[in-house]
Computed example of a mutant assay.
Amino acid sequence: MVAEREIRLSDGRTLRTFDGGGTGPVVVWHHGTPHTGALIPPLLSAAADRGLRLVSYARPGYGGSPSLPGRDVASAAGDVAEVLGALGIDRFVTVGSSGGAPHALACAALLPGRVTAVATFAGLSPYGGDPGWFAGMADDRALRAATAGRAARARYAETAEFDPATFTDADWAVLSGAWAALGEDAVKAGASSPDGALDDHLAFVSPWGFDPATITVPVLLVHGADDRMVPASHADRLLTAIPGATRWLRPGDGHVSVLAAYPAVLDWLVAESSLR
């Protein structure tokens, strides 16, 4: 059973945390944009089958964690360090999906003595002003608005609607099946936590606060070849930027269906880390 609690940080903020329990190696999950941070059944079951303890938290602005305007991607490392300190956890592997992927990489870069391996699904690469960064995105309006600042991104949100064509048929198939809870959680977070997505987008198109090239632990980049939300070119950019990274490009998968590889990714994380 998942234990939920609020953890107070050294700066007075609180973060909502989710702990799947157990005594095995720890996996920290970084949720997408938008999500509440809750640990949904397919995440928990694959971890439990492998004797892993799965932990997550709601980033600022999501799921009961107060917003933190101006946060950068790197700030996730400090938040995770304090959350895991409160839970009595030292070393861990970490995985992030979509908007959670850059935050997982931040932990790998900035907590090298604690993170022993990292994997990402459908993750963005750093934005440096190159117009090509947006190429292949079915709907880039939110991120483009974010490049103009907080007020512009907030104005966009007032009339924004999700374009169903952003997801492939494979995405919709898993969202109506094994990963239905993921879609339900995204809808819940989108309605209740608008600041979370806004601040995520601002962080993605701003300096991340760390250089992915400094990551020294094993890195796995998993991406659907047919992803219309975050094109596979972002995995290519990260593969070039991170020395020694491994890429799994999955033909036929989109932004969400790529999560079918989650059990295999957990196996990779354990095999590549020193948590066995």
Rank of each mutant, 00 (worst) to 15 (best):
G99F: 01
E158Q: 15
P194R: 09
D49R: 14
P25T: 15
K188I: 13
V95S: 10
T166F: 02
P212F: 13
A38M: 05
T116R: 15
M1W: 04
D253Y: 13
A146S: 10
G20S: 02
D200E: 06
P42T: 13
T23H: 14
A117Q: 08
F92G: 02
V118E: 07
P42M: 13
E6A: 14
V230R: 11
R8S: 15
A145D: 07
R141K: 14
R150M: 01
G20P: 00
V174A: 08
A151S: 14
D211P: 14
P218V: 01
L44W: 04
G196T: 01
D90F: 08
G100L: 09
A241P: 04
M1A: 15
P218W: 10
A232Y: 05
D236F: 04
H223I: 03
G100S: 09
E4M: 06
G177C: 08
D72I: 14
L105W: 07
A264Y: 10
S233Y: 02
A189L: 12
G183Q: 09
S56V: 13
D227P: 01
L39A: 03
V219E: 01
A81F: 02
D49F: 02
A170S: 11
S10E: 14
G96R: 01
D72T: 15
G136F: 08
G37H: 03
L84M: 09
A178K: 05
H31M: 03
G88A: 11
L15S: 04
W248Y: 06
F162K: 02
P69F: 01
D79T: 09
A152D: 10
G252A: 09
T168F: 12
S206F: 06
E6K: 11
A48Y: 04
A232L: 12
V26N: 00
R13Y: 09
G196P: 02
R13K: 13
G99S: 06
T246I: 12
A264G: 15
V118Y: 02
A119F: 03
A138S: 04
E82G: 12
I215G: 07
S192K: 13
V93M: 11
G254N: 07
A197K: 00
S45E: 12
G64I: 13
G209L: 10
A135P: 04
T23C: 11
A58T: 03
Y156F: 15
L105I: 07
S67M: 06
G196W: 02
A101V: 03
P194E: 08
A271H: 05
P41T: 07
S98F: 13
A173L: 13
S75A: 15
Y57N: 04
W268T: 02
A260Y: 05
H35K: 15
A178H: 09
S257Q: 04
S273L: 01
W208M: 08
G244A: 05
V73N: 00
A157K: 11
A145I: 05
H35P: 07
L202H: 01
V73H: 00
E6Q: 14
G177W: 06
A157Q: 11
A152R: 13
V222A: 06
F18A: 00
V256F: 06
V265D: 02
S273P: 08
Y262F: 15
G209S: 12
D199I: 00
V222R: 07
R153N: 03
L238Q: 05
V230Y: 12
A81M: 06
V205T: 06
R150T: 01
D211Y: 14
P41G: 01
R16E: 07
G51S: 12
R114K: 12
S65C: 08
S97L: 12
G12I: 03
